[in-house]
Simulated scan of single mutants.
Amino acid sequence: MVGVSPGRVVEALPIRPGNEALEALPALSRALEGDGPALLPVAPDGENARELRTALGVGEPLLAHEDDTMDPTSVVIGTSGSTGVPKGVLLPNSALRASAEATEERLDGPGTWLLALPPHHVAGLQVLMRALISGTEPCAVDVRDGFRPDAFVEAATEVFATWGPYYTSLVPTQLARLIDDPDSLRALRQFDAILLGGAAAPQRLLQRAQDEGVPIVRTYGMSETAGGCVYDGMPLDGVRVAVEPPEPGRIHLYGPMVARGYRYADSEAFSDFGFRTDDVGQVRDRRLEVLGRVDDMIVTGGVNVAPVQAERPLTDHPGVREACVVGLDDPEWGQIVAAAVVVSDPSAPPDTAELREAVRSRAGAEAAPKRIVAVEELPLRGPGKVDRAAVRDLLGRQ
């Protein structure tokens, strides 16, 4: 590996989605070897690209504790999270390689990857990094006109013309769109593994994929763990999961793919080889079940409700395609449970009393939404994540 001189700087890497993302491979390869600056991938036309460049010190040297001559910081992942405050996740060479190697070990070894996610987010970037580390040539979906099933099929056809195994990574909204299109469904079935993450997937969507023979692998992780490090509830090799008692509790993740820390910030979230997440979960039958973020928990009448407890019964209802549950301030209850739902057929929406009863019967009376509002679509942030703050504002105005 090339040695690292003191004072390596952070350099922005404008990286567009689709085929243009492949033009960044040489720069990413050099960064993996510690040759040159640490790279901050940004969307050239992104709303917060300039903010990230300023907040994360583009053009400025890495501080002493932000780099290591023996294990250089390869990339800095810019993330605003749910707070909107920019953070720069420092991912060293070792973390990226450990993530790629553990993924290959869990799947079917090195293969050809199809990029279908924004490459400036960790899940999309890791598609490119896995290909570089394994020595394979990735392909990409043309998203100049948005994410379309026909463009996915065209790119997948290019993938299937190479050596397998074949892999891609999607978010639930993409999977839902693809699985309803006959041509893209046939393409999905030809992959050896489809990593699905970025947001909670409705159980009905997962069941549909299973019934259709689509090889879904549910992933859990974040930028601070170089992407997914728990697959189908089971940690990758070298990863340890701990949940603060009593369960459900805050999730801790340990392993070689944990980031070095944050740019310009000391954080108690990082300890020796570990990361204290902002997520709540529990372990059932040795598998991790993620229930949501700590700050998304709803306290209504003194009872804690995880949004997913209400979202699952709602999305399992045939009349609901998507749902987001949040807490709204209330003088009597402290918070009330409220839900925004995207209905399957706007001309024949399900009865709200029926939806409320579906949640009550499975998750208890405290989880039953007191307010249910139908919306055309859920607001998103990042790669397929529902913007809960925007949903909260929307429901608060109803």
Rank of each mutant, 00 (worst) to 15 (best):
T136C: 01
R208H: 14
L13W: 05
R371M: 15
L40N: 06
G135K: 01
P165G: 00
R240M: 07
P92G: 04
L195D: 04
E158V: 13
D71W: 09
P165T: 01
G396K: 12
G3F: 05
M222H: 09
P6A: 07
G334V: 08
V290R: 06
R16V: 07
R218Q: 14
R250A: 03
A200Y: 10
I133K: 11
G124H: 02
A24V: 12
R362N: 00
R148S: 02
D68K: 08
D266Y: 08
D108Y: 14
I15Y: 00
E289Q: 14
Y254T: 11
R287A: 12
M257A: 12
P182T: 02
E33Y: 02
D145C: 05
V373N: 10
E322D: 13
A176E: 07
R388L: 11
G36L: 00
R16H: 01
R144A: 10
P44A: 07
S271A: 13
T136E: 09
P318W: 08
R284C: 09
Q174S: 01
L25I: 01
Q190L: 15
E244G: 10
H120Y: 12
A155Q: 07
E101T: 11
G78K: 03
E376N: 03
E47H: 01
V283L: 01
P61G: 07
M129A: 10
A140F: 01
S74L: 03
E33D: 09
D183L: 11
R204D: 06
P235I: 11
L117V: 12
E244P: 04
G327M: 02
Q210S: 15
T103L: 12
D35V: 03
L91I: 11
G213P: 12
A374L: 06
L328A: 06
R286S: 13
G281D: 03
A259Y: 10
D211Q: 15
V76K: 05
A187F: 05
T352Q: 04
F147E: 08
T277Y: 10
G238M: 15
E158M: 06
T168N: 10
G255M: 04
R240H: 13
P72N: 10
F273S: 15
R53L: 15
P118K: 05
I194S: 11
A116F: 08
M70Y: 13
S169R: 00
S82G: 13
A12P: 06
V290C: 03
I216C: 02
G327V: 04
V308G: 09
R276M: 08
G233V: 15
E20Q: 12
I15E: 01
M129V: 15
E23C: 00
L117C: 13
L355T: 07
G18C: 01
Q282V: 08
V75I: 12
D45H: 09
R356T: 08
R312Q: 12
S271K: 05
G78M: 06
Y167W: 11
Q203G: 15
L380S: 08
V171M: 01
